[in-house]
Amino acid sequence: MAAILEMKVITTEQNPKALGATVPELGIDKLPAHLNLGTHSKTLFSMFTPEVCKALGGRYANWHDASAVIDPEGIDRVIIVGIESHVCVFQTAMDAAGRNNGNGPRPIVLADAVSSINPQEIAVSLDRMRHSGVDVATSESVLFQLMGDASHPRFREFSKLVKEEKDNTSGTLQKMIGAVPI
């Protein structure tokens, strides 16, 4: 969907030497070069390392360096997915919400695209994020929001992929959210 919607994607990996790299099934390497902002290893629990902030540009560009020039064409809104909802996802969302300072679009965490080694952590983390200025939604809801209109030039391609992934989406919702209240 990132390719269809022309969404830029940045990937971070928490200490990949010890914890492993991003799984190829996500297809990050298949994104067109102008949409793939790279894969960055980190030890910081938040993804907002100086290197990542520079790659994002916009409101994030000078996060770690007040003298840096802000690129107005940089990323304005972030959609967060990932592993360990109560650690890296939570701290990334809190940093994004804090950077927003009540101005501009709120960060979005996709409830069906976060996980935890302890599944009980997910609902608590999503609740904490929601109460701290982060929007919590499902991936399909946000994708349709981004598509905006059935008259979009790539709507047929978008709709076809939604239909092809219907069973996967349903299974993921059940597995990731299930009966856990969010």
Rank of each mutant, 00 (worst) to 15 (best):
Thr169Cys: 10
Asp95Gly: 05
Lys30Ser: 13
Lys54Gly: 02
Gly178Ser: 08
Ser46Ile: 10
Thr138Lys: 11
Leu26Arg: 04
Thr169Ala: 13
His34Trp: 10
Gly133Gln: 00
Ala97Phe: 06
Ser85Val: 08
Ser159Trp: 05
Asn168Val: 09
Gly27Cys: 02
Glu121Ile: 08
Phe155Gln: 01
Val114Phe: 03
Gly20Ala: 08
Asp29Gln: 09
Arg106Ser: 03
Val162Thr: 07
Pro105Val: 00
Ile83Lys: 02
Thr22Val: 12
Thr43Trp: 13
Phe45Met: 08
Phe155Pro: 02
Leu31Ser: 08
Val136Glu: 04
Ser141His: 05
Met1Gln: 08
Gly133Trp: 01
Phe48Gly: 00
Leu31Thr: 06
Val9Ile: 14
Ala18Arg: 14
Ala113Cys: 15
Met147His: 06
Ala137His: 03
His131Arg: 14
Val142Ser: 03
Leu37Gln: 04
Ile177Leu: 06
Arg154Pro: 02
Ala66Asp: 14
Thr43Ile: 14
Ser46Cys: 13
Gly102Val: 05
Phe144Ala: 01
His40Ile: 07
Lys166Phe: 12
Ser132Thr: 07
Glu157Leu: 14
Lys166Trp: 08
Ala123Val: 06
Asp29Lys: 11
Ile70Asp: 10
Ser115Trp: 07
Lys42Phe: 14
Pro16Ile: 11
Leu26Ser: 04
Ser125Glu: 07
Leu161Ser: 09
Cys53Gly: 04
Pro32Cys: 13
Leu161Asp: 03
Val124Ser: 10
Lys42Thr: 06
Gly104Met: 02
Pro181Lys: 13
Asp112Val: 09
Glu73Cys: 06
Glu73Met: 12
Ala61Gln: 07
Ala33Met: 13
Leu5Met: 10
Met147Asp: 01
Lys175Gly: 07
Ser139Phe: 12
Val23Thr: 04
Asp135Met: 03
Phe45Leu: 10
Gly82Cys: 08
Tyr60Trp: 15
Met147Tyr: 09
Ala111Met: 08
Leu19Gln: 09
Thr39Cys: 06
Val114Met: 00
